[in-house]
Write a protein that binds this DNA or RNA. Sequence first.
DNA 1: TATAGTGTACTAGTAAACTAATACACTAGA
DNA 2: TCTAGTGTATTAGTTTACTAGTACACTATA
Lengths: 124, 124
Amino acid sequence: MDFDDKVPIYYQIKNHLYHQIVTGTLVPGAKLPSVRQLAVDVTANVNTVQRALSEMTDEKMIIPQRGKGNFVTDDVLSIKKLKDKLINEQLSLSYQELHDLNLTDDQILDEFEKYIKNRSEIHE
Amino acid sequence: MDFDDKVPIYYQIKNHLYHQIVTGTLVPGAKLPSVRQLAVDVTANVNTVQRALSEMTDEKMIIPQRGKGNFVTDDVLSIKKLKDKLINEQLSLSYQELHDLNLTDDQILDEFEKYIKNRSEIHE
DNA sequence: TATAGTGTACTAGTAAACTAATACACTAGA
DNA sequence: TCTAGTGTATTAGTTTACTAGTACACTATA
């Protein structure tokens, strides 16, 4: 896995898994790869993976079952809420940042539009 | 200063100062507060501040003068470039994140529009 | 029942970021 | 010339994230 050395690895793993849950790569009730397998997958230590999973367990997004594995929550609503939260955090974050760079609301929207338009041209 | 404990403090200080340069709070050629004063301002250690300033010096955005202080570069063009870089990094980052959450380009723009509209209503 | 695959806990060691304190070189001004 | 305010360097110690290795409890299955 490609890590940003400015952010703790366990945090990036957690985020990575949350993305898989939210996008349906990991469906509700699905079994996660074992901690040892995950450690191999993301090229990190078992303990680091475990730390990510612990927080996810605390947040009730996965349920651990001793001897069996970790399972994605069945609660579809809470997954929806997680997705909304992730989206909103991102919007808020980037609005904040661009606003702090002295862009007006209109400029922010413009820049975003330009960026996406430009991007789709390059990638088509 | 309010730090995000997920990101190194020196990095946040650097970012903070870059914002001031880009937005004109610190004009080209202006003298920065002394390292000791900055340390007080942002409630961090002198060495941590120094580390931020070192990187900024390496990137030629400030010029240190022994015995006098640190001064913002006079090169207006490079300040402009810095601003563009900061904006672009943010756009790219949040596009990436929202795209990874399975939002289409249109949805990303929509969400952004909604967010900003909503925000301005609350704050007017 | 034995074994392999799970989660979990613990101890130990390393590296990086941060703090703290001190010292030194340079500049400007009284 | 002295002094206060600069940047800069160095040494030492703390904390946190991370790695490594081991051990143990539990589950499913051959």
